[in-house]
């Protein structure tokens, strides 16, 4: 294995770890806001790590810029949808764990 492969592997594994943490948080946290907290932080970083791992692996300028674009669009979509869900939850739903469980 070359150095590039090592770096790729490390980045991909770290990204998967963050995704796993975010998913565990989504499943285990008690209410909407905590779940969003887990998702928005961990998954965005996970996506960044996976994208950069793939970028290191390919090394082509075109692929790297495409991966950067994917990450940015993913960030934008995740941010806005999390914002909208949080807003809706804040305005309409009771925040007790039982109620938000139903809305999952």
């Amino acid at each position: 294995m070359t150095l590039t492969d090592d770096v790729t592997l490390a980045l991909l594994l770290a990204g998967c770890g963050f995704y796993l943490a975010g998913t565990v948080g989504l499943l285990r946290f008690p209410d909407v806001f905590c779940r969003l907290h887990a998702l928005t932080k961990a998954d965005n970083l996970g996506l960044f790590l996976v994208c950069s791992g793939l970028a290191v692996h390919s090394g082509e300028a075109r692929v790297v810029s495409l991966l950067l674009l994917i990450w940015l669009v993913g960030l934008l979509a995740a941010t806005v949808s999390a914002h909208l869900i949080a807003r809706h939850a804040h305005q309409h739903l009771a925040t007790s764990p039982e109620d938000s469980n139903e809305q999952r």
Partner: peptide, 14 residues
């Protein structure tokens, strides 16, 4: 539609 500027920003890009 929720009146938040973020939706407009999202649409402007997407």
């Amino acid at each position: 539609a929720p009146e938040t500027p973020m939706v407009g920003a999202l649409l402007a890009v997407v």
